[in-house]
Design a protein around this nucleic acid. Sequence first.
DNA 1: TTGTCAATCAAACATTTGTTTCATATACTA
DNA 2: TAGTATATGAAACAAATGTTTGATTGACAA
Lengths: 226, 226
Amino acid sequence: MSKDDARTRLLNAAGPIFAEKGYRAATVREICETAEVNLASVNYYFGDKETLYVETLQRSHPPAVIKHLPETWPEGTQPAEKLKDYISAMMTELLGVETAPWRVPLMMRELQSPTPAGSALLRKFFGENFSILLRILAEILPEDTPSYKRQQIGLSIIGQCVHYRVAGKIIPLMVSEEEFSEHYKPEQLAEHIAQVMLAALGLGPPLARGDRPSAEVGAAARETHA
Amino acid sequence: MSKDDARTRLLNAAGPIFAEKGYRAATVREICETAEVNLASVNYYFGDKETLYVETLQRSHPPAVIKHLPETWPEGTQPAEKLKDYISAMMTELLGVETAPWRVPLMMRELQSPTPAGSALLRKFFGENFSILLRILAEILPEDTPSYKRQQIGLSIIGQCVHYRVAGKIIPLMVSEEEFSEHYKPEQLAEHIAQVMLAALGLGPPLARGDRPSAEVGAAARETHA
DNA sequence: TTGTCAATCAAACATTTGTTTCATATACTA
DNA sequence: TAGTATATGAAACAAATGTTTGATTGACAA
């Protein structure tokens, strides 16, 4: 192992460590030890710790949702199908065990404590994914839907997906262990989110026996409660 | 100002600083300067920096969603109304300018990098809010809805709300400045999320011209939208 | 008044940590 | 072979930072 040159080994070691501990708490000593290089190597190859961080960040960018999506969908694919694919791809990206499981955590850290160098990357990282979603939604929503509304529906979808990563550590603490291991796999969650949003968009059955599918009146919920 | 005793001033100063910079990057020197106390005070009153952090965390816990909700709803209040209230309360809690705007950011940091002391608080903090939501959902969903399904619907709601806090810093970068200032106020976002979820639950009109509103046909949402 | 005790203060201390230095080794070239 | 550039190594350096120390103050009680 560690057949790569020192510079590459440093980048490989830095990714997981920055992701787990954050920029500040990650020490160049630990990174160098992990990479099995001399302490001076960070400054030799990158000048300083911050530059190493920036390059680590840049290397972590490329693959995103697109990676898990088909180049183009077959002619005539229903928008609902595309949406399902998108949500599934997003969940795979966020929760899947990929080749570099530290990329997403690193971006999440940037989201919380943006560094000057990170902001541009963040915008690109999320912007690309988001614009794909917006295009799918454009096929579903009426043409006269204002763009802010379309964006907010998009954010509703992203939000549900991202939450399983953001709150991932405490969800197992709040649901039973059995439920968690049985029903919280990425594909199942993607299925659930798709179900919610397709119902919201009117492309699938509502989750509850709705008594008032229209805005006006209708007999309301009755004899229901825990 | 700073009429409180040194110990209290330390806690007041520590909250915002820990919230903004995180445990590691926050220095006792900065905290002491802000609190206008001597450098040795942290160790004098709390023993060490970590204990100060833990006490800050504990102090930041109490108020949550409940704070913005009525004690009990009037008899006969529709579950849909309760859900709207809940979502509105959550958005106020997450985005509103409250008395201690650093509480939520601090909890978000714990969520990402849990400390031993923080995990218990986190569970309480989110657990209390979540159980209220689950009770409301129980009134809406069919009785035979499995509990994991109810939880996931709850997480869909929480996720949408929390996302505006998590991604709050980059959303303005991805939508036009005008759209953001016009349509992304907490109350408007709460309204949007409620609209999405009520539609998903069948308690409101779908967001788009649905072509297949129910699994087995049935007269469904019509000429309704926006 | 005098003694006691908690609080405050400036200074020093010890550790961590990013960075630099300079010597040595290694590989490639003239 | 000799020379040079590149890479690696151990050590030291300097700054930041959590913690400790010992003196001083000030209030209050005997």
